[in-house]
């Protein structure tokens, strides 16, 4: 049972990250290699609030959300926007996000050691499970992460389908040039998408320590699962990220667990191999992801 619970929590968090990745990919056209580090930024924000101000990580969610959003916007405005204005190729933009990831890794690593020096606690490696409580037979993180997903989906649905800004946003996702002619400021929608992406990652990062140990370099490891989830679902579809997140999240934890029962605990280190395997199968069978499949398209139309 604990395994299924862990798999669900992990999937929920992965969904937050892969929706973030997908949104910026749709509006800006660049896969953000720094998405994993965005999340770890959130983790450290939560840790700081816990150690210095004694705020429980669950209450740190709004703060992580805002901070993450600001970081996302800054990256877009400082790094990507000037490059796009220069007509940089997509590979150049990807290298820029890789560089951003490295800067983040440096900042997070430096900050973790600084935090250790002022709090005299271990901050270069931490986990929040001891701060979690249980509701019934389940740990609270299961409910919190599910709640976050539900709220997010409701928010996205209302925003995208019920508001004027959402319609403009969808228009500029579908066809930026046409949207611009119709008077939509595509720049705003891009900035908003980066805010949203950063905010979602911040929240995911705030909750991630309840599921796994965090070190400054965790972002570089988790990025594989984020990309796998987004690509399996289809990089250009938000719903795809939702489906992909559950597929990768559960296969990474449940399949690995099942295999470890069969073949012994040595298999557990191969968890990411399974997501890679799913990713490659998805690329061969459906290069545009599940949402790119013809029958799924017809269903969702």
């Amino acid at each position: 049972m604990a395994v299924i619970e862990g798999a669900l929590v992990y999937s929920n968090l992965l969904i937050l990250l892969s929706i973030g990745l997908t949104i910026t990919y749709i509006t800006t056209g660049v896969p953000n290699f720094a998405q994993g580090s965005f999340a770890i930024f959130g983790s450290y924000a939560a840790l700081t609030l816990l150690l210095l101000h004694n705020i429980h990580p669950y209450f740190a969610i709004p703060i992580a959300l805002v901070l993450g959003g600001i970081i996302g916007v800054l990256i877009y405005v400082i790094v990507l926007k000037p490059l796009i204005a220069r007509g940089a190729e997509i590979v150049t933009l990807m290298i820029a996000t890789l560089a951003t990831d490295l800067i983040f890794l440096g900042c997070i690593g430096a900050y973790s050691e600084y935090l250790r020096s002022i709090t005299k606690r271990i901050t270069t490696k931490f986990i929040f499970t001891q701060y979690d409580f249980s509701i019934g037979n389940f740990s609270a993180i299961l409910f919190v992460s599910t709640l976050v997903i539900v709220v997010l989906l409701l928010f996205l649905y209302t925003l995208l389908y019920k508001t004027k800004f959402g319609i403009a946003l969808r228009a500029s996702m579908e066809n930026p040039a046409l949207a611009e002619i119709m008077g939509v400021n595509v720049e705003y929608t891009r900035i908003f998408s980066w805010f949203l992406s950063g905010a979602l990652s911040g929240v995911a990062g705030c909750l991630l320590p309840f599921r796994q140990e965090i070190v400054p370099a965790t972002g570089a490891i988790i990025i594989v699962s984020i990309f796998a989830a987004s690509i399996v679902g289809g990089l250009s579809s938000i719903y795809g990220a939702l489906i992909g997140g559950y597929i990768i999240g559960t296969s990474e934890s449940l399949v690995t667990y099942a295999l470890s029962k069969l073949l012994g605990p040595g298999v557990l280190v191969y968890g990411k191999v399974i997501s890679l395997f799913v990713l490659i199968i998805a690329l061969i069978v459906a290069p545009r992801g599940i949402m790119g499949l013809k029958f799924v398209r017809r269903l969702t139309r």
């Binding site: 820029a96 560089a99 951003t100 490295l102 800067i103 890794l105 440096g106 900042c107 690593g109």
Partner: peptide
Amino acid sequence: YILFGIIMI
């Protein structure tokens, strides 16, 4: 890391 990241950008 920070330095080389910034140089790259």
